[in-house]
């Protein structure tokens, strides 16, 4: 991959999401302890760490997907543009429209490609006419680098696409609600290397409009696509900083062990 990306500067210093002292419990299990993270706007932030370290849990806190798990309890403060997303006045539905999510396994709905992408705009009422919707669908498919492959078969089922295409369809679906932040939970773990490269390229392009948070267990991937990296271990945020700094000059011995392949 192009190593140039590592050299790219972080373009903005505005905090999009600020997390302070976040604790997550699954029943009696204390899954996440005292996590403080600031996620910058127009930046790709990678969460890395061995499996079970809490990185996916934390990601799911950011758009309150943990609400759907009955036993999960979240404490601490997470703000989006300065507004506490766990405030009683916040509707998770509205929140999730602003913070979209792409999952580990491509999960296109059993609908046509068009309907998959149109799903978000339809439920949120983002378009008024069919023509407008068509435009949004096309734009999102283009942004997800899928348009040329599917433009002739928009009405065929999304489940008929290949794995990489399915995941790009899911990304198109996520950006169709015009989110401000895009969360990606190991988006390439179910894909082959070629599809992975396509998706990674896409992530880099998305950075110009969204703040992207990506969970990955591939350090190479984190190094390739992200500007900032957070390392989680056993429910703790061990180290957070510029990706280059984390990989070349880790401060914490645990980070170093992980990066050099001794744990994980």
């Amino acid at each position: 991959m192009k190593d140039l990306r590592l050299e790219r500067d972080v373009q903005t210093e505005t905090n999009k999401i600020e997390a302070r002292k976040v604790q997550v419990y699954y029943g009696t299990n204390h899954a996440l302890k005292d996590v403080d993270v600031d996620i910058l706007d127009k930046t790709v932030t990678a969460f890395i760490g061995p499996s079970g370290c809490g990185k996916s849990t934390f990601l799911r806190c950011l758009n309150r997907m943990n609400d759907t798990v009955a036993s999960a309890k979240v404490q601490g403060a997470i703000t989006l543009d300065g507004e506490d997303i766990y405030d009683a006045r916040v509707d998770p539905v509205q929140l999730r429209a602003k913070i979209g999510m792409v999952f580990q396994k491509p999960n296109p709905f059993p609908k046509s490609i068009y309907d998959n992408v149109a799903y978000g705009p339809k439920i949120h009422g983002l378009t008024r006419t069919k023509a407008e919707l068509d435009e949004v669908v096309e734009a999102c498919l283009r942004k997800a680098a899928l348009w040329n492959e599917v433009k002739d078969r928009l009405q065929s089922p999304g489940t008929g696409l290949s794995g990489g295409q399915q995941q790009r369809l899911c990304i198109a679906r996520a950006i169709a609600t015009s989110p401000e932040v895009l969360l990606m939970d190991e988006p390439c773990s179910a894909l082959d290397p070629i599809a992975t490269a396509q998706v990674e390229e896409l992530i880099d392009e998305l950075r110009s409009q969204f703040s992207v948070v990506i969970v990955t267990h591939s350090m190479q991937q984190a190094a390739r696509v992200s500007q900032r990296t957070a390392f989680f271990h056993l429910g703790n945020l061990v180290e957070y900083g510029e990706t280059g700094a984390i990989f070349t000059n880790p401060k914490d011995p645990r980070t170093e062990s992980y990066i050099t392949g001794r744990i994980g």
């Binding site: 758009n63 759907t68 602003k98 979209g100 999510m101 999952f103 709905f109 059993p110 799903y119 609600t177």
Partner: peptide, 27 residues
Amino acid sequence: VPQSLRDGSLGLGATPSETIRQVVIPA
């Protein structure tokens, strides 16, 4: 119906009933 479909829909900001009517039931 796989949970991933529900997550996909909820993650886009659909309400549970929208998820059920437009994703789970059709599936």
